[in-house]
């Protein structure tokens, strides 16, 4: 009982802080200086129609490199923690078949879902979406495969090859930007092209596709590691 009272007291204090924040908030009438710079210069410097993509891939590219590294570490630690719990294979309990509808449906839906994921991350600089969303859609195709065939084992070597290849290429493109253009991860190593076309915005489609592959491989590895853990 005393614990619940302490929790409620803590929440009241936090709620009071939130209330003062909320009543003191007034929306800006104009963009602040950083946002104004991005709004004015993205089209002519970067050539990307989606300003959020321009910030993530180019202006703040180093942060995104750190982000995919953190995600890689999370996936690696999940694999490490669950490594000894993985089913030995032969000891797997035989599960009930998943049904004709799911098996057939997954065969016809899988290529379409993969295509949608690739479309989302290739068009990241023009439309909403990009590497993270596309990677998650690709991973959900892998999830459908897992649901249709629960005893299936993914090829972990293939996943780690895709993951390390795209991570390595990402860093190589960043260093190329340092040598050929203005700085690390500068997208102007390729021509900026015509605004609004698929092959425009320099290296952004290339970098975002690599991020999409890397994120998709990492999510697939987390999903397959958790689904291969032995039932306790």
């Amino acid at each position: 009982m005393i614990k619940r009272a302490a929790a409620l007291l803590l929440l009241t204090i936090i709620g009071g802080i939130f209330f003062t924040l909320l009543t003191g908030y007034s929306a800006d009438e104009n963009l602040n200086l950083t946002a104004q710079y991005y709004a004015e210069n993205t089209a002519k410097d970067i050539g990307a129609a989606n300003i959020v993509t321009a910030i993530i891939v180019t202006y703040r590219g180093l942060d995104t490199l750190g982000e995919v590294t953190v995600l890689f570490l999370a996936a690696a630690i999940v694999g490490l923690v669950l490594a000894r719990s993985r089913g030995a294979g032969a000891a797997q309990t035989v599960k009930a078949p998943v049904g004709e509808l799911l098996t057939t449906g997954s065969h016809s839906l899988l290529p379409l879902i993969l295509l949608l994921g690739i479309y989302i991350f290739v068009n990241g600089h023009l439309t909403p979406g990009g590497g993270f969303q596309g990677g998650a859609v690709v991973a959900s195709a892998m999830l459908l495969l897992l649901l249709a065939n629960p005893v299936k084992r993914f090829n972990h070597r293939l996943i780690s090859i895709i993951e390390s290849f795209s991570g390595f290429s990402y860093v190589v493109i960043g260093v190329l930007g340092l040598l050929l253009a203005g700085g690390f991860l500068d997208n102007r190593i390729l021509p900026i092209g015509e605004f609004g076309q698929l092959f425009s915005a320099g290296a952004i489609p290339l970098i975002y596709s690599l991020i999409g592959l890397k994120v998709g491989a990492e999510f697939s590895s987390i999903l397959s590691n958790l689904s291969e853990a032995e039932e306790l």
Binding site: A74, I77, V78, V81, N225, L226
Partner: peptide
């Protein structure tokens, strides 16, 4: 990623 880590530790 953090949620996946917490779930792995819960397991």
């Amino acid at each position: 990623g953090v949620t996946a880590l917490m779930l792995a530790f819960a397991y």
